[in-house]
């Protein structure tokens, strides 16, 4: 399983901080598509993605136990 984390407006839209998804072997892009279909998430395509706490590209492949975080535009400071 792959752990998927949501933050800020994405978290409120999904209604959960995290979900476990059967996404082993998929790419980040495919996971995004799957999450878009399953949840009513606004502007998921604009989110950056972190794989195991590091920014990654959409073509990265997912392995069992990975943690993916969808990072909407940040506003710290």
């Amino acid at each position: 399983m792959v752990n998927v984390l949501f933050f800020a407006e994405l978290q409120e839209a999904v209604g959960k901080e995290r979900v476990a998804v059967d996404a082993v072997g998929l790419t980040i892009a495919e996971l995004k598509q799957q999450c878009s279909q399953e949840y009513d998430v606004p502007r998921l395509d604009q989110a950056m993605v972190a794989l195991n706490e590091e920014y990654t590209a959409d073509d990265a492949l997912l392995a069992d136990g990975d943690t993916v975080a969808f990072i909407p535009p940040v506003s710290g400071g």
């Binding site: 933050f7 800020a8 407006e9 409120e12 972190a50 920014y55 975080a69 990072i71 909407p72 535009p73 940040v74 506003s75 710290g76 400071g77």
Partner: peptide
């Protein structure tokens, strides 16, 4: 750099509503 890429978000609470702010 913090405002560009550190995963931190702020939610504004106004008198008439709320909003998660992005891309400052």
């Amino acid at each position: 750099r913090i405002k560009e890429m550190v995963p931190i978000w702020k939610k504004e609470h106004w008198e008439d509503g709320t909003k998660w702010i992005g891309d400052q």
